[in-house]
């Protein structure tokens, strides 16, 4: 064989082995639009945000978690993991010392600079973000790909979608309104408008969001709540057992439809606000409340 033929053969061999290696590697595009390539599914991972932590556990990857963000608290077993500061207090040294392969961060809570710095230090960073149920599915798919659990991810998504479809099929579209309260009166009222899970859940249940004219979470005027006279009040304030009585006792709220007919529900605020598979349970509980189905 001539020298030329040998080198051609070697080059072909190299190309073949490279494509074989690439086929095993995982390339994902995260929510910042960054392309991240992993040689193999991650086995050492840190979840900074509660929603991502819940998704990873639902995928059956709790074993792979080496630490959790401070506010990750579900399932309860993750509380045994070491907690790291997240959001504005993110401590890069603390994170690097854990030697994770992948850190999952949220693009709202963390700046692009923090993400870039970590990436430069040899840790792969995956950013997630979700303002809608469709985007939660994307997050689940993304993390499923990172962990090599594509089938599990699709199963979770299918289950969630089937639940939402089931509720939507059972619910009749009405003009009745729900007022979601995310901050109590004592702190200045806040409600949730379009671009929130609460808004979508109301739609799935066939109801109107009383504050569909605002975007995201906003401080709102108490007068507006009284004037809009919602048929249902859903508290997402996480204020404990006395929250419903506090609402009933508010001056000027007594004539409100929801208060008169006692349609006030103290929801699990984490379940209803976190981009996680538990949105399914949030939807079921909301449906039960709206349709007077006792738990």
């Amino acid at each position: 064989m001539s020298k030329k033929t040998v080198s051609l053969f070697l080059a072909l061999l190299m190309m073949f082995s490279m494509t074989a290696a690439l086929a095993e590697a995982i390339t994902v595009t995260d929510m910042f639009g960054r392309e991240v390539t992993l040689a193999e599914p991650a086995t050492r991972i840190v979840a900074m945000e509660p929603g991502d932590c819940e998704i990873l556990c639902a995928l059956g990857c709790e074993e792979a978690l080496v630490a959790r963000g401070l506010y990750c608290d579900y399932p309860a077993s993750v509380l045994e993991l070491p907690a790291v500061a997240s959001g504005g207090d993110t401590n890069l040294e603390e994170l690097l010392a854990l030697e994770p392969q992948v850190i999952v961060m949220n693009d709202m809570a963390h700046t692009k600079e923090q993400v870039e710095l970590l990436a430069q230090n040899g840790v792969q960073v995956i950013t997630t973000n979700a303002d809608s149920i469709a985007e939660v599915y994307e997050n689940i798919r993304l993390l499923g790909a990172v962990m090599g659990k594509n089938a599990e991810a699709e199963a979770i998504i299918a289950d969630m979608q089937a639940t939402f479809d089931g509720i939507a099929a059972r619910s009749e579209a009405t003009d009745k309104t729900i007022y979601f309260e995310v901050m109590p009166l004592e702190w200045g009222l806040w409600s949730a408008g379009t671009g929130t899970f609460m808004h979508e859940l109301a739609e799935i249940c066939g109801m109107q969001n009383a504050f569909a004219d605002i975007e995201g979470w906003q401080p709102i005027s108490q007068e507006q709540v009284i004037e809009r006279n919602p048929d249902y009040i859903v508290l997402v304030t996480g204020m404990g057992e006395t929250a419903v009585d506090e609402v009933k006792d508010r001056a000027g709220w007594g004539d409100m439809e929801a208060v008169k007919s006692n349609k006030i529900y103290n929801a699990d605020s984490y379940q209803m606000t976190r981009p996680a598979p538990r949105l399914k349970e949030a939807a079921l509980e909301l449906y039960d409340f709206l349709n007077d189905i006792a738990e």
Binding site: A251, G252, G254
Partner: peptide, 15 residues
């Protein structure tokens, strides 16, 4: 007279 205006004016705005 009962109504929204009473609730808003007397219970929310006035105080």
């Amino acid at each position: 007279p009962q109504g929204i205006s009473k609730n808003i004016i007397l219970n929310v705005r006035l105080p």
